[in-house]
């Protein structure tokens, strides 16, 4: 790290708190883009406590499958244009995942008037393929990823038991092994950012713009999951990526999307949102099935955009014009 900094060839940060600013926090504008939708996912596979029971009349168990959005946050704070997660590239995976509504994230951003080259920072909540899968669309953006996330993947790859080190354990199924969810191409793109001096390897908390703070949420979904706190006119909002897969899960204290998850840590990540925002309303979730409806009030100010995918205008900073058609 020191070598790169000394040589002036890398914009790589490895020190907790690097990038902290003393400037006064200003409110940010926030939009949410549905990068795609995973169709017909069994509810119990997403939230074990809500597994479908045929014939049940309980609202907790009477839903068979759900369509899960893949939500990406677009955050504008002054001249900073920040993404919370980076979606994925369905051209490579499309048929494998039963996906609908996908378009390239750069095109989805263009529909609300943002250029991909203007994105200054991308904070990936974790490194899974559906959250870090289109980094190459944003050549000027600095990537923020936790060192713990990289360490976790590498640890898994080098584990002596092949059943644990396997990226996937069997044909046709990611069985939630420690390295599950990190295809070579996704890791390639993270490496490309590091190689080009466009990555900050975060070690814990970090303020990346005035009032915009990264919080570690290790093992809340993956080894190095992280949250992003953003100051807005409606109070602080927290983007949780897959540590906050389900907003209903945060509201009802139920775990969701347990991949490499320590459920205790996921609950502590939920609590973090309550503490930062004063409740659960402003927790921004990556795969909440009720996104873009009245049932998830933060995201209800929405419309249908490119290829049938939703967009929500969550809050506008003073002077920021609406981008809702």
């Amino acid at each position: 790290m020191k070598k790169q900094l000394a040589l002036g060839v890398a914009a790589l940060g490895l020190v907790a708190g690097l990038g902290a600013t003393s400037a006064q926090a200003q409110n940010c504008s926030v939009w949410l883009i549905e990068n795609s939708t995973f169709m017909g996912v069994p509810y119990g596979a997403f939230m074990p406590d809500r597994a479908f029971v045929p014939g049940s009349t309980s609202p907790m168990n009477n839903i068979n499958t759900v369509d899960l959005p893949v939500n990406v946050g677009v955050i504008k704070c002054g001249k900073e244009l920040i993404l919370s997660d980076a979606g994925w590239n369905a051209e490579d995976y499309h048929k494998m995942t039963g996906t609908a509504h996908w378009s390239p994230l750069s095109k989805q951003m263009a529909q609300i008037g943002f250029k991909a080259e203007d994105v200054t920072k991308i904070v990936i909540g974790h490194g899974h393929w559906d959250h870090a899968g289109s980094l190459d669309e944003f050549p000027n953006a600095i990537l923020y990823v936790q060192k713990e996330e990289l360490r976790g993947i590498e640890w898994a790859l080098n584990y002596p038991n092949p059943k644990i080190s396997a990226v996937n354990t069997s044909p046709g199924g990611c069985a939630r092994t420690p390295a599950c969810g990190y295809p070579p191409k996704t890791v390639d793109q993270i490496y490309a950012k590091v190689l080009r001096g466009k990555a900050v390897i975060v070690d814990g908390e970090m303020e990346i713009a005035p009032g915009v703070k990264i919080h570690p949420a290790f093992r809340a979904h993956t080894a190095g999951s992280q949250l992003l706190e953003v100051p807005t006119a409606i109070g602080k909002v927290v983007f949780g990526s897959d540590a906050y897969s389900s907003w209903q899960g945060i509201r009802d204290w139920m775990i969701a999307n347990p991949q490499q998850t320590d459920t205790v840590q996921q609950f502590l990540a939920y609590e973090k949102c309550y503490k930062i925002t004063g409740g659960y309303q402003n927790c921004v979730c990556a795969h909440e099935p009720t996104s873009y409806t009245d049932a998830y009030p933060l995201t209800k100010n929405s419309w249908v955009g490119l290829n049938g995918a939703h967009v929500a205008e969550i809050t506008l900073a003073s002077g920021e014009k609406s981008r809702k058609p």
Binding site: N168, P171, C174
Partner: peptide, 16 residues
Amino acid sequence: LLKVGETLWPGEYKPN
């Protein structure tokens, strides 16, 4: 690898 996997091992990478 992804393109080949799409044909040979559908579901190699599930939503997560």
